[in-house]
């Protein structure tokens, strides 16, 4: 009887693992179709808005140095592509460097707090102070201290991105299933073992949530710092266009920046899906 029940149990699990319910397949297809429709709707809305903008500017006769028409922006984008690409590479490099530094700092702080509970108050107070200081006030000071190079941009970006990682990682490390925590306690596992096998893997979804916030934030950090004085980058391109009232160029830079922010977000999402799938396989 026992063996039969075990065999039935095994069969059920194997079925669960292998069979794809045809009705489920239909549902997936339907969901995919409705997803595609939603995306098409979004694109259509965007096209309508751009068209309304073009027509509105044309009808109202708004001067180009106040609001350029989308066609002006597209032209500026085409003419300035080489310079914008160069600037984008600079900004992207600073943003990535700052993101890596900020993420590493936030993660280290969260790990330190997890192992040494009594550090929590002190570390979080300092972190909150650093996070609450307006970046727009810190950026010029850093430029005076560190010059017009990449240094201040990386530091500003790190200042902006460490906090989401710190709070999310902390939350993630504490999100271990209480039953699993009990089991580790019942075998008197040391803190390093618990961290390695339970806290760290439990925190993955939280770490990716942090990255989804901080990756686009990193682009903003780098650009804001570039506004305060830089020798290159999208922020400098924007500043130059702004001070010369070349609105189409300014808008073109904004379009590139928005695209890059969306791209970094998308990359994090793809990495998240791959990482979480790898441990389900």
């Amino acid at each position: 009887m026992t063996r039969q029940a075990v065999a039935a149990d095994h069969r059920a699990a194997a079925d669960r693992a292998r069979t794809i319910d045809p009705s489920a397949e239909v549902a997936v297809a339907a969901r995919r179709r409705s997803g595609r429709l939603a995306r098409l709707g979004g694109v259509a809305l965007l096209v309508c808005l751009v068209a309304a903008w073009e027509v509105g500017v044309d009808l109202a006769g708004t001067p180009v140095w106040i609001v350029p028409a989308p066609s002006d922006v597209a032209m500026a984008l085409r003419d300035g592509l080489g310079g914008l690409a160069e600037a984008a590479v600079v900004t992207l490099g600073e943003a990535v460097a700052g993101l890596v530094l900020g993420t590493a700092t936030g993660l280290s702080m969260a790990i330190a707090i997890t192992f040494f509970r009594h550090l929590e108050q002190a570390v979080l107070s300092v972190a909150l102070l650093a996070k609450s200081t307006p970046i727009i006030a810190v950026a010029p000071i850093l430029t005076i201290w560190l010059g017009f190079g990449h240094g201040p941009k990386v530091v500003v970006t790190a200042l902006l991105t460490f906090f989401p990682m710190l709070v999310n990682a902390l939350e993630g490390f504490r999100s271990v299933d209480p039953a699993i925590e009990d089991w580790f306690a019942s075998v008197d596992a040391d803190a390093v073992t618990v961290f390695r096998h339970a806290r760290w893997p439990s925190s993955w979804p939280f770490l990716f949530t942090a990255l989804k916030v901080s990756a686009p934030l990193a682009m903003i950090g780098a650009v804001v710092a570039e506004w305060m004085g830089a020798s290159g980058g999208l922020g400098r391109s924007m500043w130059l266009a702004y001070t010369n009232l070349r609105m189409p160029d300014l808008f073109a830079a904004v379009v590139v920046l928005t695209g890059l922010s969306a791209l970094t977000y998308h990359l994090v999402t793809v990495a998240e899906r791959a990482a979480l799938a790898s441990r389900r396989a």
């Binding site: 039953a179 699993i180 089991w183 075998v187 008197d188 893997p201």
Partner: peptide, 30 residues
Amino acid sequence: RAGRVGWMAQRPALLPWATVRDNVAMARRI
């Protein structure tokens, strides 16, 4: 402290990201 108390609860409390083999091996290692 000697790792000599067997503990089973209503929920199996296995590590979801580890294989069955790894889950058992973990207890053996500890």
